[in-house]
Computed example of a mutant assay.
Amino acid sequence: METITENQKVRAAKKLKKMFGHVDLRDTSLICPIRDVMAVASDKWSILIVLYLGYFPVLRFNELKKKVYGISNKVLSERLKHLEGDGYLKRTMYPEVPVRVEYKLTDFGHSYLQKLIELTEWAETHKNCVISNRTSYHGS
């Protein structure tokens, strides 16, 4: 496991102060925009959708449904609409019979994908530590 230096802690504290220093954290209505953006972009389904669209440049609805195991049609449709509305992905409809709809990441979506890849790499690197900590915590 990597060691966090005091310098890294100071840099993180400065960034957090810049982010929240002007906000009265007791008034949660003031941080809603951050929470709102993070809620749409970071739920488990949206993360998987963005990761799969990063790996497969273009996917149709049913292809996404097969890859994002366990998601219902309703939830997938909702997540795709939110991600499209926020600019993470582009939906293209082709006037064919049956209608063909494809999804792909926008440049904005690709910028988010870069951060998700970093987070995913961190999770991969530290998964054994988390599992060990869980085991210790639960006494198994």
Rank of each mutant, 00 (worst) to 15 (best):
residue 3 T to V: 12
residue 3 T to C: 05
residue 6 E to T: 11
residue 6 E to D: 12
residue 10 V to R: 13
residue 11 R to F: 14
residue 12 A to R: 15
residue 15 K to I: 13
residue 16 L to P: 03
residue 16 L to H: 05
residue 17 K to H: 13
residue 17 K to S: 11
residue 19 M to Q: 14
residue 21 G to A: 06
residue 24 D to F: 06
residue 25 L to M: 11
residue 26 R to W: 05
residue 30 L to R: 15
residue 31 I to N: 00
residue 31 I to T: 05
residue 36 D to A: 11
residue 37 V to T: 09
residue 39 A to F: 08
residue 39 A to E: 11
residue 46 S to T: 05
residue 46 S to A: 15
residue 49 I to Y: 00
residue 50 V to H: 01
residue 51 L to C: 03
residue 53 L to R: 00
residue 55 Y to D: 10
residue 56 F to W: 09
residue 58 V to W: 07
residue 58 V to G: 00
residue 59 L to A: 07
residue 59 L to R: 00
residue 60 R to C: 07
residue 60 R to L: 05
residue 61 F to S: 00
residue 61 F to T: 00
residue 62 N to M: 10
residue 64 L to W: 02
residue 64 L to F: 04
residue 65 K to F: 03
residue 67 K to P: 01
residue 76 L to H: 04
residue 76 L to S: 06
residue 77 S to W: 06
residue 77 S to Y: 08
residue 77 S to F: 08
residue 78 E to A: 08
residue 79 R to I: 04
residue 80 L to V: 06
residue 80 L to W: 03
residue 81 K to D: 11
residue 82 H to T: 07
residue 82 H to S: 11
residue 82 H to A: 10
residue 83 L to T: 01
residue 83 L to A: 02
residue 85 G to C: 06
residue 86 D to V: 14
residue 86 D to N: 10
residue 87 G to E: 06
residue 87 G to A: 06
residue 88 Y to S: 02
residue 88 Y to L: 12
residue 89 L to E: 02
residue 90 K to T: 08
residue 92 T to P: 00
residue 96 E to D: 09
residue 96 E to C: 08
residue 99 V to W: 02
residue 100 R to V: 13
residue 103 Y to T: 02
residue 103 Y to Q: 01
residue 104 K to D: 08
residue 104 K to T: 10
residue 104 K to I: 04
residue 105 L to Y: 00
residue 106 T to S: 09
residue 107 D to C: 07
residue 107 D to P: 06
residue 107 D to N: 14
residue 108 F to Q: 08
residue 108 F to N: 06
residue 109 G to N: 01
residue 109 G to K: 01
residue 109 G to R: 02
residue 110 H to V: 14
residue 111 S to W: 07
residue 111 S to A: 10
residue 112 Y to N: 04
residue 113 L to P: 02
residue 114 Q to Y: 12
residue 114 Q to L: 14
residue 114 Q to E: 15
residue 115 K to D: 12
residue 118 E to F: 08
residue 119 L to H: 08
residue 119 L to T: 07
residue 121 E to Q: 14
residue 123 A to H: 13
residue 125 T to W: 06
residue 126 H to L: 08
residue 127 K to E: 15
residue 127 K to H: 15
residue 128 N to H: 10
residue 128 N to S: 10
residue 129 C to Q: 14
residue 129 C to K: 15
residue 132 S to C: 05
residue 134 R to Y: 13
residue 135 T to R: 14
residue 136 S to D: 11
residue 140 S to H: 12
